[in-house]
Design a protein around this nucleic acid. Sequence first.
DNA 1: CATGAATGAGTGAGTACTCACTCATTTAAG
DNA 2: CTTAAATGAGTGAGTACTCACTCATTCATG
Lengths: 191, 191
Amino acid sequence: MSRPRNDSRRMALLDAATQVFAKHGLQAPTSLISKTARISEGSLFTYFKTKEELVTALYLDLRVDLASAITSNFPRRSSVRVRFEHVFRRYVTWGVAYELKRKALRSITLSNLVTPAVRAQSSELFAEVDRLLADALQQRLMKDLPAGMSSQALKAIAEMTMDLIDRDPERGDEYLSAGFQMLWGALARKP
Amino acid sequence: MSRPRNDSRRMALLDAATQVFAKHGLQAPTSLISKTARISEGSLFTYFKTKEELVTALYLDLRVDLASAITSNFPRRSSVRVRFEHVFRRYVTWGVAYELKRKALRSITLSNLVTPAVRAQSSELFAEVDRLLADALQQRLMKDLPAGMSSQALKAIAEMTMDLIDRDPERGDEYLSAGFQMLWGALARKP
DNA sequence: CATGAATGAGTGAGTACTCACTCATTTAAG
DNA sequence: CTTAAATGAGTGAGTACTCACTCATTCATG
């Protein structure tokens, strides 16, 4: 009955926002995003009512992307150690392969634009990882750490590893292996 | 021959900038900083020619503060393990006690306003920590990790620990102990 | 000692510019 | 034809920084 919205334009805007936010941070102007997407400034606001809405949509998009990178082909039946390494490697590999996505996601996460409700919603995408950590604890493979600390350590060491690889991609494999060794050393009971 | 600058006004501006940047990020208006310091907007620009200069001055100020918190009473003659724990505890304790300073410093560090030269200059304040890491490596207490990775791990795990304590200060001591256990597990050779 | 000229800090309205968002108009799908 | 998407100049609320002026402080002079 009327002209429909074009989903590929919406995606072009999200893609442009990824590049722009990664390079300039969240305070980059919306005009730069629309220009990068080769779409008029006005159209941006028919797809996203406000800049905040655009940021939230991009946040969800990127979190889904990351979660599926980690969760696809997840070796659900394998040992804790194997699953752990799977998660860590996939996480780091995703962040290195899609540096712009990672940087945009970091900018958004550090800002306070995304509501706690949306954050909580997107955390459900990572339920598989929580289950893994719970298994590890139950099998007494892990140190007794305060609740939630192990998942934060996973994130912190993965992010650190990615930053190092950004700076010196040649040694990517060394950093990746060393990062997992450190993570395992940090969390595992000493055998 | 003329009215002298008043150092306490400069400090008031730096203090206000700490609060404002911690709460609103670096994009907070200079007018809010001068207002918080109860100093006219014009005066801010007699003490700091540009906003960037203010940010750089604050960065150096906070880095000196952190370095002296870590380095004062440093147990230079003690074992690597004792020195290590000293650094970690002092780092985390400083960050928790001065949450605003830590958040402002983080905002500044993540922005690209501070030149690499200034960053390098301020890193010299932490030479004692580098020496400690070198000693640990030489005494074969540490895993063989790619260069620079151990200091990044120290930073990453300390920051993670501080974030957790912010969220749940009651369990501060638990997080602090667990954080150091994790750090040591991450870096030490397994004996 | 008194005085006032010299200096530069202190002030806040003003300036030039940027940004998120709007709207009148055009274009295209159904 | 009807409807809504597409466009980009326009709008008004900020923002970093300036500038014309005031006033505190110093010290050379009589």
